[in-house]
């Protein structure tokens, strides 16, 4: 049979598949939250989901609009304060994987969520750092999820909000960072992984129906493709049905129609 899916659904499904049942995952709002809960509802039932509002091992039946919705606390194993979350749990090294978005990303998966334009006179003021800089350095590894475009996949960031692989190579290690940093960049077109030596984000899997030229056209630097590039497996009927159910329940719960 033929299944139809949107680019966002593809991104969410691929992100969910990257998670394991043994992971302790620091979850961001939006697509990461959908992906983490999709994983929990399909192949990773024992995954521990942590939101920075302090909820540990939460099992929401609908997706939160914000990082601290009551649903997260009601379904959590325990809820700790925000200073405790950042000090004992994140800095304490208890979290295996974090999901981050960005407004801009460069080829070494450094992220900008602060400003477009100069800091003192920005063309667009973005929300800022939030937890991202320390999530990036303290989680065991990081998955980044972003839709690709030349506006967001840029040669040079306007502001380095969050340090990914820096200038590449051993830059993380030189700063004393012992975690892996960005190990996957999941987009609406493909999956990038860091080159083992240079740490440049390199295409390792292309989503069904996507051409290499589309990826290059949507990227502000010359894209590198790995020697062997896989085709991403299509979303399964179970993955799509579970994800759509989750979104339907969420829209109803947030009072914005079914």
């Amino acid at each position: 049979m033929t299944l139809a899916w949107t680019a966002t659904e593809m991104m969410t499904v691929v992100s969910a598949r990257a998670l394991r049942s043994t992971d302790v995952c620091f979850v961001g709002i939006g697509l990461p939250s959908a992906a983490c809960n999709l994983a929990r509802l399909t192949h990773a039932p024992d995954i521990t989901l942590i939101y920075e509002s302090g909820t540990i091992a939460t099992r929401p039946s609908v997706l939160p609009l914000s990082i601290g919705d009551g649903e997260l606390c009601d379904t959590a194993l325990t809820t700790v304060s925000v200073p405790e979350m950042f000090r004992y749990w994140l800095q304490g090294g208890r979290i295996t994987v974090g999901f981050l978005p960005g407004a801009q990303i460069d080829r070494f998966a450094n992220l900008n969520t602060t400003v477009i334009g100069p800091y003192d006179a920005p063309a667009t003021r973005l929300p800022g750092s939030g937890g991202a800089p320390e999530i990036m350095t303290h989680c065991g590894e990081i998955f980044v999820t972003m839709k690709q475009s030349r506006r967001s996949f840029v040669q040079k960031l306007d502001f380095v909000t969050t340090f990914g692989h820096g200038e590449g190579g051993d830059h993380r290690a030189r700063l004393g960072i012992r975690t892996k940093g960005p190990t996957r960049l999941i987009t609406d077109l493909c999956v990038f992984e860091p080159d083992p030596e240079t740490k440049e984000m390199t295409v390792t899997s292309i989503h069904p129906g996507v051409e290499r030229a589309e990826i290059s056209d949507a990227t502000g630097w010359p894209v590198r493709f790995a020697d062997t590039v896989a085709e991403t497996a299509m979303p399964t009927e179970l993955e799509l049905a579970t994800l759509r159910d989750l979104h339907t329940r969420t829209r109803q719960a947030h009072g914005v129609g079914g």
Binding site: E52, V82, P83, M85, F86, R87, L90, Q91, N110, G128, S129, G130, G131, A132, P133, E134, T137, H138, V160, T161, T162, F163, G166, H171, R172, L175, G176, I177
Partner: peptide, 27 residues
């Protein structure tokens, strides 16, 4: 960043002059 503010409030509550933590690397 969040880690700094969370630590800075805790330092204020603890009557310390500053907060110390692992953070802000490379940014």
């Amino acid at each position: 960043a969040h880690a700094a503010m969370a630590n800075a409030y805790a330092a204020g509550a603890a009557n310390l002059p500053f907060a110390v933590f692992r953070g802000y690397l490379g940014v």
